[in-house]
Design a protein around this nucleic acid. Structure first.
Lengths: 256, 256
DNA sequence: GTTGTTGTATTGTCGGACAATGTAATTGTC
DNA sequence: GACAATTACATTGTCCGACAATACAACAAC
């Protein structure tokens, strides 16, 4: 080990292909703050000239950053630097988790840590607009309680709003993929366990009430109960808790 | 709203540029399972022919997926499908969180939920190899207690190993960016608060001991204490808890 | 069984081209 | 002078063709 390192350590050759180095160069400029959010990058031709490479190569480099949502084609067509959209990043995570074959149990036990915490913090910090959005969400859920698809997307939105209400961007980012994967694995749960709809509505109502009151401890408790109940529903429906969560094609619809 | 939708709904034209559609096509094939992990994709020329586009366009599409770590240039040069490496995905998150200007407090309070849980589960599920790795890690920390850089990277590794020991890929993925951002924001903490090193070592030893014993509750308690202590150190060092975490250029070194 | 050699396939990079489209400048009109 | 229509220009998205570098495979030599 020590031997092989000292041999290889003659020089640390940068063997990356050019397009990757282009991407890194731009990324570095953004991360270091030389390029700030909203700044426009030079045109592809200029970039090519500056970096001394061909335009095609620049383009390939750009694609990578575009995918990470670090840059965007603005209203014009110039490239502008942007702060990554949470939903876009969350999708990267969702996809990765899906391919990693995580089980329901893995996600669920993690959710049991995160969501009650989100509810507790939300009860302390929620802003009026988000509270209003939560109220609307619960009202809508009550209306469409027989439309499975809508129940699921409503459910996701409820929890997303709670996370947002915590005013903690990291919490939002981290909880989103878990949520989406878990919930979209249960789209057809309501056919098997119809009464689950009502328990869902009840729980959301209770959580909302506690958040409105600003009772952090009770909000947390209700949310924990809600998540635990969710697992019971999953079991009752006859799913295998330890099987890898299947990645439903519709999953991506829950973003953006 | 209703009006504009019905007008636009004549046809749902896919307005995405071709390279994006190429990326989506491949991604879809992977997600749907038509392409499995380890499968090799056709060559660029073949792909271009199959999809009816130019090779340059295919390349641009590939770059996006490459960045998301869904595909890789294999030992040869053929493209092979792979399950995304946690570290690669974690870096995407770290970068995003860094640009979102999350504060120490945001990250810390989240960590306080996740890490103790990880320790608790680790105490129940840890495998011999990981236990051994943990022991080594603590031993190394004791050796290099005066090398700030090493202390930090050792610290990160310790917590990473605990997360891995939980055998929950989702937990690893979620905790990694938080960890890296937090800890790398404290590289020069040890100069200001030298005694922190010893408390760190003490804590790691205690956590390791409880994990070895398989005492889940105690492991959790010690970890929680450790994280809380971490915050105190940060405060004592005079950092602003609510300021956005600065993205240290060296941060990326803590991956891979 | 290692070490070269040769041949082939594929990628990485390049240069140039052009249509589509958005931006800016110019003109025309009141 | 302000505002609308038109024109000219710049930039992107896509395509084509070309070539050196390199990884792989098969085979030869030691």
């Amino acid at each position: 080990m020590a031997r092989s390192r000292s041999e290889a350590a003659l020089i640390q050759v940068d063997t990356d292909p050019t397009y990757k180095r282009v991407a890194k160069a731009i990324e570095e400029a953004i991360m270091s703050g030389r390029l700030k959010t909203g700044d426009t990058l030079p045109t592809e031709t200029e970039l090519a000239a500056q970096l001394g490479v061909n335009r095609s190569t620049v383009r390939e480099g750009i694609r990578a950053l575009e995918n990470a949502d670090l840059i965007e084609r603005g209203g014009a067509k110039r490239l502008i630097v942007r702060v990554p959209q949470a939903s876009k990043i969350a999708w990267v995570n969702t996809r990765a988790l899906g391919l990693m074959n995580v089980s329901f149990l893995d996600l669920w036990e993690l959710q049991l840590q995160v969501e009650p915490f989100a509810a507790a913090v939300a009860a302390e910090r929620i802003e009026p607009e988000l509270l209003e959005a939560l109220r609307e969400n619960v009202a809508r859920l009550a209306e469409h309680l027989d439309d499975d698809e809508k129940v699921t997307s409503n459910d996701i939105e409820f929890h997303r709003l709670v996370a947002q209400a915590s005013s903690n961007a990291a919490l939002s980012l981290v909880s989103e993929p878990i949520r989406v994967l878990l919930f979209s694995a249960t789209i057809d749960l309501y056919e098997t366990v119809p009464q689950a709809r009502h328990r869902l509505l009840e729980a959301h109502r209770a959580i909302l009430a506690e958040i409105e009151k600003g009772d952090s401890a009770e909000a947390r408790r209700w949310m924990a109960r809600h998540i635990e109940d969710f697992r019971r529903g999953y079991e009752v429906a006859g799913y295998d808790l330890r099987a890898p969560i299947p990645i439903d094609p519709r999953t991506q619809d829950h973003f953006g």
